[in-house]
């Protein structure tokens, strides 16, 4: 058994995860599941589905830790991208689209208002994005949280691709300044 540490630096974490340490994987989960859960919930919008995706994301982290390259960025950035990609894939999957259609029908009938969607605006990264100006917010919403390419966004919003590109970059700089403490 390893000595139970209360804090690991990133190099130790990655090294011990590659040695298949359950102890350290548990530590990783305890420290990062909340942050990843938040971004997943931002994207998929449903609590129960977000829990499923979170489990799937940690399985990927566990099984793909050997492909993590520390020279390219932080471990958290790598995990965050896994979480974002898994969430967008889930939202785009056929079963999710079907269930969303059903739910929207139900909500129309009972007029309960899409409360779960507004609620996920108020947590995590998405809450910060929603503090930006509308023209920037829309672009980050579509590209980051919904995963559309700039080409797709250009067509959806009928804005020239060059404008989408410039405006999105300005939006990201503003986002950077918002999250920089």
């Amino acid at each position: 058994m390893e000595v139970v540490k209360t804090k690991y630096n990133e190099t130790e974490l990655v090294s011990l995860l590659r040695q298949r340490s359950q102890q350290v994987f548990s530590y990783l989960y305890d420290n990062y599941s909340g942050a990843l859960h938040s971004i997943i919930l931002n994207i998929v919008g449903e609590e129960e589905l977000a829990n499923d995706v979170l489990q799937e994301v940690f399985v990927k982290i566990w099984r793909q830790i050997d492909s993590y390259d520390s020279s390219k960025g932080r471990l958290f950035t790598w995990m965050l991208n896994i979480a974002r990609n898994a969430s967008i894939d889930t939202v785009r999957s056929k079963s999710f689209q079907n269930s969303r259609q059903n739910r929207e029908l139900t909500e129309d009938v009972y007029a309960s208002g899409g409360s779960s969607e507004t609620r996920t605006d108020q947590i995590g990264l998405r809450k910060l994005v929603h503090g930006l100006k509308e023209e920037y917010k829309v672009l980050i919403e579509l590209s980051y949280f919904q995963g559309y390419t700039q080409d797709e966004i250009s067509k959806m919003l009928s804005i020239p691709l060059g404008t989408v590109k410039t405006r999105l970059r300005t939006a990201l700089i503003q986002l950077r300044d918002v999250i920089k403490p």
């Binding site: 359950q22 994987f25 548990s26 989960y29 990062y32 599941s33 909340g34 942050a35 990843l36 859960h37 938040s38 971004i39 919930l41 977000a50 829990n51 979170l54 489990q55 940690f58 399985v59 566990w62 960025g73 932080r74 958290f76 950035t77 965050l80 947590i123 995590g124 990264l125 809450k127 910060l128 950077r176 999250i179 920089k180 403490p181």
Partner: peptide, 27 residues
């Protein structure tokens, strides 16, 4: 990257306990 991580950790939402139990059972 550092400020993104800090922000994400600050805005964390805790998943229910069963998620971890299921994850560790699976692995």
């Amino acid at each position: 990257e550092a400020s993104l991580e800090r922000t994400a950790l600050a805005g964390a939402t805790q998943p229910p306990v069963y998620v971890k139990q299921e994850l560790f059972t699976q692995l």
